[in-house]
Amino acid sequence: MNLPAPHFTVIFLIMENKKNIAFRTVLAHELRRAKNSFDEYILTLISPEIENKDLAIKRYELYIDFVAHLYEFYKGCAELDDRIPDKIDHIQLDSILTAEAERHLLMARERIDKGYAPVWENNRNYYDVKVPDDFGKHWRYIRNRRNHVNVKRFTGEDISLSEFHEKYHRFIFMLIITDFGEFDSNKPNIQWPIPRQKHNMLILLKI
Rank of each mutant, 00 (worst) to 15 (best):
L3C: 04
P4F: 04
F8A: 09
L13S: 10
I14M: 12
I21H: 14
A22L: 14
A28I: 03
L31I: 00
R32I: 00
K35W: 15
S37N: 14
D39F: 08
S47E: 04
E49R: 14
K53H: 10
D54E: 11
D54Y: 05
A56R: 12
A56F: 05
Y63W: 07
Y63N: 07
I64V: 13
A68Y: 00
A68G: 04
H69G: 01
Y71G: 03
E72H: 08
F73Q: 01
Y74H: 13
A78W: 04
D81Q: 05
D82F: 09
R83L: 12
K87E: 15
K87N: 14
D89Y: 11
D89W: 09
D89G: 09
I91T: 10
I91F: 13
L93R: 15
L93F: 11
R103W: 03
G115F: 01
P118S: 09
V119M: 07
Y126V: 04
V129Y: 03
D133K: 12
K137M: 09
W139K: 05
R140M: 07
Y141W: 11
I142T: 03
I142C: 00
N147H: 03
H148L: 02
V151I: 07
F154C: 04
T155H: 01
E163P: 02
F164D: 00
E166C: 04
K167W: 06
F171K: 01
F173M: 08
L175Y: 01
I176S: 07
T178G: 13
G181N: 06
N186C: 03
P188H: 09
Q191G: 05
K198H: 09
M201R: 09
L204I: 07
L205R: 10
